[in-house]
């Protein structure tokens, strides 16, 4: 019986990992000063309910998910999120003034025109790595920055 359950689980495992997340439009803003945190932005969409459980990059010690929450007094605060829900078929946008991936402890300054790899860890879909272009200090949206 136990063997059967293990076998069944083994068969189901690839099915459970079938969720796919598409990560598009990554970009980060160039740093002005070394030793200051950076911010990266992406759009993520999953074909089924999934959850972003973390992110990492070789160029930073830590990547934190930051979002804005508004309290009863209308004061918006940047808050650290451990996870972020990705409802099926819904594009979740990281953008200035909304959510961003904060890059803590950068090993190097983010220089305009360079790129760096960023790996997003999803609960169901696993790891997705994207190449993040660094745009100018004044970039506020991907389209503006690439002009």
């Amino acid at each position: 019986m136990r063997v059967l359950i293990v076998a069944a689980l083994a068969v189901m495992l690839p099915l459970a990992a079938h969720a796919e997340v598409v990560v598009t439009d990554p970009w980060a803003r160039a740093s002005i000063l070394a030793s200051r945190p950076g911010a990266a932005y992406v759009t993520a969409e999953s074909d089924e309910d999934d959850r972003l459980i973390g992110a990492s990059t070789p160029i930073a010690d830590r990547v934190m998910i930051h979002a804005i929450e508004t309290d009863a007094n209308g004061i918006g605060r940047m808050v650290h999120r451990k996870t972020l829900d990705l409802p099926a078929g819904e594009a979740v946008d990281f953008a200035p003034g909304g959510m961003h991936l904060m890059l803590m402890g950068l090993s190097e300054k983010l220089v305009e025109g360079t790129t760096f790899p960023l790996t997003l860890h999803f609960e169901a879909a696993g790891e997705v790595t994207v190449n993040v272009p660094v745009l100018g200090v004044a970039a506020s949206r991907l389209d503006e920055g690439s002009k």
């Binding site: 945190p37 950076g38 911010a39 940047m78 200035p96 003034g97 904060m102 004044a138 506020s140």
Partner: peptide, 12 residues
Amino acid sequence: THCPDICPTTLA
């Protein structure tokens, strides 16, 4: 200057 999102966005 440690603010990575709103501050550079607003100053730009």
